[in-house]
Design a protein around this nucleic acid. Structure first.
Lengths: 203, 203
DNA sequence: GTGTACATGTAATCCGTTACATGATTCC
DNA sequence: GGAATCATGTAACGGATTACATGTACAC
């Protein structure tokens, strides 16, 4: 029984994300891509390390999905600008436009992980943590809105705009969620005694 | 200039998550831990592969944070049950109860990534994808509620309950977000023509 | 002239997954 | 007898990060 092997599009999502960045008009350096990922991609997906971006760009070029040229003496710095190729655009389209499952979203929420272990901490500490989280989330909300402002009114960026609006609402939900958890917590620590002095360990 | 090296608690979050599972009363096998992670941890953090769980258990034992014993002939199967040790509980408490930043939540949302690249797909395909996502999210909501039902009424599980309530609300928000995106999309594809026949590639 | 941002890359390492291998038990 | 579940592990690999190394351009 031969294993069904689909040789096409077995690239990691990161590769598609980087190629996606290149799919918008213009040529860009790895460095620019990283800044852009930090400012927008990261709110709904993730921003790869700069070394990772360079690595993906090399891979995409090896596959013929991207092409690069060194800037000559006409520009002050030596940099390498990448552009998507026809083959790259085709591959990306078939990835984005296919019918296969996008896959489940993946969430790692270190704050909730610690709340889950609330029996090991003091309620005050938990509250502090949540408030810190709220502060950060408010900062991120502002950043999302900045990104959105930069994309607004431009017909070319209509889909990135949708992704950013999703991100904005998501940040708002994150704040709401934190507040609700704070309330739950107040309720629970009212009913529970603070940290039982000593719990015997099994074993 | 000596680099400030903090030798304590440089374990990956996954290790703490597994130790956290052990911090609730009872001894457990790696297999049981995996099932539990699938049923609850995964909704706010993530469920490691089973091989990873075994690896973490071995590491925790090497560190003296967990202890295991093989079941003897009194039990049908040979299994290895783990329990947290005093040192393990102390380490976990200092991790959970410390003041350091919990770190930002990490989200990888493959669906939104594809919507972001909407200019490469047809609006109909995007809608299909979103509807698939909604269906999955509804399934997960149900699972969260099942987990919650299992923890309800038990004083011991009051913090895990809070994490699960957070997860329930989060799933509801996810559904809301998807619906809002669907609406945004309908608006955008009404205004935009379908896939421009050919875009010249730079380079 | 010093610090910051720009710009590109290599090396070491680790995190985590998939695939593989093995075997017992239970249910039908 | 065969399938599904319980149960534990190894090996190979790839994805991704951090730290390191290097150098240019620009602002103060």
């Amino acid at each position: 029984m031969p294993k069904k092997q689909d040789t096409r599009q077995q690239l990691p999502p990161t590769a598609w994300a980087v190629l996606g960045l290149l799919s918008f008009p213009g040529e860009r350096t790895g460095y620019e891509l990283k800044k852009w990922a930090d400012a927008s991609l990261r709110f709904f997906y993730w921003s790869p390390a700069i070394s990772q971006i360079y690595a993906e760009l090399r891979r995409l070029e090896a596959l013929g999905y991207a092409a690069s040229r060194r800037s000559g003496p006409e520009e002050p710095r030596t940099k390498r600008r990448y552009a998507i190729t026809g083959a790259g655009r085709q591959a990306l389209e078939s990835w984005a436009g296919g019918t296969e499952d996008s896959g489940p979203p993946m969430l790692k929420h270190p704050l909730v992980l610690r709340v889950w272990l609330g029996h090991l901490a003091s309620p005050a500490r938990l509250r502090e943590r949540i408030e810190l989280h709220v502060a950060r989330a408010e900062g991120e909300l502002k950043e999302v809105r900045d990104a959105l402002a930069g994309a607004e009114g431009n017909e070319e960026w209509s889909y990135p705009q949708i992704a950013l609006r999703w991100s904005e609402r998501r940040q708002l939900a994150e704040l709401e969620l934190a507040r609700a958890m704070l309330a739950d917590l107040a309720h629970a620590s009212g009913a529970t005694r603070q940290l039982p002095p000593d719990t015997p360990t099994p074993g």
